[in-house]
Structures are given as C-alpha cells and as structure tokens.
Amino acid sequence: MCKDCSGLNPDIEKKLLEIIEIDKDKKGSAMIILHKVQELIGYIPFEAQKIIAENLNIPMAQIYGIVTFYSRFTLEPVGKYKIGVCLGTACYVKGSDKVLEKIEEILKIKAGQTTDDGKFSIDATRCVGACGLAPVMTVNEDVYGKMEPDKVSEILAKYH
C-alpha cells in the first residue's frame, strides 16, 4: 500500500473506486457517492474522503464540509448494533427519554457514543415515523414499539 494514498484496506479501496466510477459523471454526485461509502465502510474515513475529492476533482475541504453537515455521515465507526431511540414528539410525550436513560445506564455510554467492544452505539434519533407505536426504539433494522424502560435489558440481551 502506498503511504500517500491510503490506510484503507486494498479491497475496500477498489470497491470505493468502483463506486466513484459509477456515479462520478452525474451532476451533484458527491452526496450519492458518500451515501454508498457510508454503507460500504460504516463511516467515512479521511482516506476515503481524499480519494473521493481527487476523483471528483473538488477540494477535500468541500467533501469534509458535506460529511460533517449531514448526520447520517459519520467520521467514526458506529457499533455493530445501532440502537436508536426516537425522541420525536409523539415518542417524547410518551416517555421515550426514560427508555433512552435506561439504555445509557445499562451500556454505560451516552447517546452518540459506541461501547468499547464496538458492539453497541446509541443514537437519539428524530422521528422514525412509527408514531403509532410510540415510544419506539430500533436496533439496526428491528423496530420495538410501545417500549418501557423495563423491557430494555431483555431486548439488548438478544444482541449479545
């Protein structure tokens, strides 16, 4: 691996270049590519930003600006299991903050952080649109509705 271009794993770098190649001629392609990279690597490391910037021929500062603007793009890896607790209005008035507190207490991390073993990360999310089931928490693609703080440990146990 050349020391200049990346600390990325060569396989990933190859895939990254493929992704860029597919979309680079579309107008406004930076966002489209960043979405795919976030999914591929799980976050958008500096090395990847540099490669994207070079290939799209736009300054890396601009790429960095886009990555840090949107909450779905992250500069750090997120946990294997992404826990989301909806703090949208409907969930909030039904006590989702207490569900979040309970998760934070059990995992000993705060919202926005990842556990040391890389297993869980917690996010206080915006409305996930399942207001009929408020309060709602999600673990990756699984949705748990009508939550109560007492149910948290049982749910987390499923992901160990």
């Binding site: 406004g28 930076a30 966002m31 886009i66 603007f69 949107y70 915006r126």
Partner: peptide, 26 residues
C-alpha cells in the same frame, strides 16, 4: 431519486436544492 442524509434544514427549498446539487444543505 436523491437521498437526504439527515438534516432537517433540507426541508427548506433553497437548502434542498443545494443538497440535490450534492452540497451542504444550507
């Protein structure tokens, strides 16, 4: 289809246009 990336302000029309163009949604 163009995907948003989690920024409430992109619901505002000029911000949304910036975002479709692939920029910060300001």
């Amino acid at each position: 289809i163009r995907l948003g990336a989690g920024a409430f302000v992109c619901g505002e029309e000029t911000a949304l246009i910036n975002s479709i163009e692939g920029n910060r949604g300001e």
